[in-house]
């Protein structure tokens, strides 16, 4: 009996060690030694043809410093467009998902730079701390700090609130939503969420089938469905109807429904899964929808509108 009690006490001691939080980040599925961008030969969700290649002069890879409560890390960022025109251009800030690095997401970033016409909008993205070649270790607070560092850099180059569009994909919907709701250096003018998740808790409840609190296994506070309620800026939600990872019903629709701002648009992409919305929708159509949303005249047959 003493042994059993000692064993249980040992397990209780260990409870201070285990939480699932760290499992949510997976920055090095395919590690890289340097960034290859268009020339990256590793796994990607889709590729664009060589004819759409971005000229080297319009593609800028650089580092910025991200300060998380004094923990300053050097993170890598990519800007596609003319940096000198940030003071007058509209810029899309792309917050990527939790897998891999900028090379993996490059086709998505490249596609956004074709919105309207090539380089009509500047596009910026970055690797969160611990991703790609960025220093540090991923964390929820790190996602927000690193995204804020990118916004701060844009502001220093002359960007203003009214010309910042923030776009989050999958895990990137968390910093995109957080910094639209609780903005610091710049207040994004519009928000685009692709395949957003409602909260970490919903993942558990979906899989387990019981209404158990997420805090039983994690400290993560990511809660897009709650934060979206604070957002007034126009909002575009895009989600694949066949998303077998982040369910459109229990995640995406909850986020969309909870938005209480001035204007929202929802696009359910029929037949699309988690990572293939762009090819299923068609690249041109995707670009058209993004462009129309940014300029304010979005008009698409299958769109859900609430103005």
């Amino acid at each position: 009996m003493k042994l059993i009690i000692l064993f249980i006490l040992f397990l209780i001691f260990l409870t201070s060690c285990l939480k699932m939080d760290d499992f949510l980040y997976n920055p090095n599925v395919h590690p890289i030694d340097n960034y290859s961008l268009h020339n990256y030969k590793g796994e990607v969700d889709f590729r664009l043809s060589d004819s759409l290649k971005i000229a080297d002069s319009m593609q800028h890879l650089f580092t910025i410093y991200s300060n998380l409560n004094g923990d300053i890390k050097r993170i890598y960022a990519l800007y596609i467009g003319d940096i000198q025109r940030i003071a007058t251009d509209t810029v899309i800030l792309y917050c990527h998902g939790n897998k891999n690095h900028l090379d993996f997401y490059y086709p998505r970033i490249q596609l956004l730079s074709l919105t309207g016409w090539k380089h009509r909008f500047g596009v910026m993205s970055f690797d969160y701390r611990g991703y790609g070649l960025s220093e540090g270790k991923p964390s929820e607070e790190g996602l927000y700090a690193d995204t804020e560092a990118a916004i701060k850099w844009l502001k220093e180059k002359g960007l203003t609130d009214d010309r910042l569009i923030i776009y989050g994909f999958s895990m990137g919907t968390a910093p995109a939503t957080e910094l639209s709701a609780n903005w610091r250096h710049l207040k994004p003018a519009k928000l685009i969420l692709e395949a957003p998740f409602a909260s970490a808790e919903v993942f558990f409840q979906d899989a387990v089938g019981l209404a158990l609190p997420g805090s039983y296994v994690m400290n993560l506070k990511i809660d897009n469905a709650k934060e979206i309620q604070k957002i007034q800026q126009p909002f575009l939600w895009i989600h694949g109807t066949n998303d077998n990872f982040i369910s459109i019903k229990t995640h995406g629709e909850v986020v969309f429904r909870n938005y209480k701002g001035i204007k929202k648009y929802g696009l359910r992409v029929s037949g699309a899964n988690h990572s293939d919305i762009q090819p299923i929708l068609g690249f041109e159509k995707y670009n058209k929808i993004i462009e129309q949303f940014i300029v304010g005249n979005l008009n698409y047959d299958n769109l859900i509108k609430a103005e």
Binding site: M20, N98, L212
Partner: peptide
């Protein structure tokens, strides 16, 4: 998001529950 990592995490917890 990376499905495999999330799956591993969830599996651990789901197995705990089940």
């Amino acid at each position: 998001m990376n499905k495999i990592v999330i799956k591993v995490s969830l599996l651990v917890f789901i197995f705990v529950l089940y």
